[in-house]
Amino acid sequence: KKRTSIEVSVKGALESHFLKCPKPSAQEITNLADSLQLEKEVVRVWFCNRRQKEKR
């Protein structure tokens, strides 16, 4: 499966949402994916990866 490159503006939106809520619910992920026009899975994985980055 190909990697999804996320635009800078979208990254900013994801980042600001992450600061408010690092573990969004499935519903929040769906809403966020719809508003940013990304697949739910891409948003879910982004949050997962971002939480791991926070641990490092």
Rank of each mutant, 00 (worst) to 15 (best):
K1R: 06
K1Y: 06
K2C: 05
K2P: 05
R3Q: 07
T4D: 06
T4H: 04
S5E: 11
S5A: 15
S5G: 13
I6D: 08
E7T: 15
E7L: 10
E7C: 13
S9W: 07
V10C: 09
V10A: 13
K11P: 12
K11G: 08
K11I: 13
G12N: 15
G12V: 15
G12C: 15
A13N: 06
A13Y: 08
A13T: 11
A13H: 08
L14F: 01
L14I: 04
L14W: 00
E15M: 02
E15L: 03
S16M: 10
S16A: 12
H17L: 07
H17Q: 08
H17D: 04
H17F: 09
F18V: 01
K20I: 07
K20S: 06
K20D: 07
C21P: 02
C21K: 04
C21V: 06
C21D: 10
P22L: 02
P22K: 04
K23Q: 07
K23E: 12
P24S: 01
P24A: 02
P24H: 02
P24K: 00
P24F: 02
S25P: 04
A26K: 09
A26Y: 10
Q27R: 11
E28W: 03
E28F: 03
E28L: 04
I29T: 01
I29C: 03
I29M: 12
T30D: 14
T30F: 10
N31Q: 13
N31C: 13
N31R: 13
L32S: 00
L32H: 03
L32W: 00
A33T: 00
A33W: 01
A33E: 00
D34N: 15
L36I: 04
L36P: 00
L36Y: 05
L36E: 00
L38G: 00
L38E: 02
L38R: 01
K40L: 09
K40F: 11
K40T: 10
K40E: 14
E41W: 05
V42N: 03
V42C: 07
V43P: 02
V43T: 03
V43N: 04
V43S: 01
V43D: 00
V43Q: 01
R44E: 15
V45P: 01
V45A: 14
V45G: 11
V45T: 12
W46F: 02
F47S: 04
C48Q: 15
N49M: 06
N49H: 12
R50H: 03
R50N: 01
R50T: 01
R51M: 13
R51S: 07
Q52Y: 06
Q52C: 08
Q52A: 14
Q52S: 13
K53D: 15
K53A: 14
K53Y: 05
E54V: 06
E54H: 04
K55F: 05
K55D: 10
K55Y: 11
R56T: 11
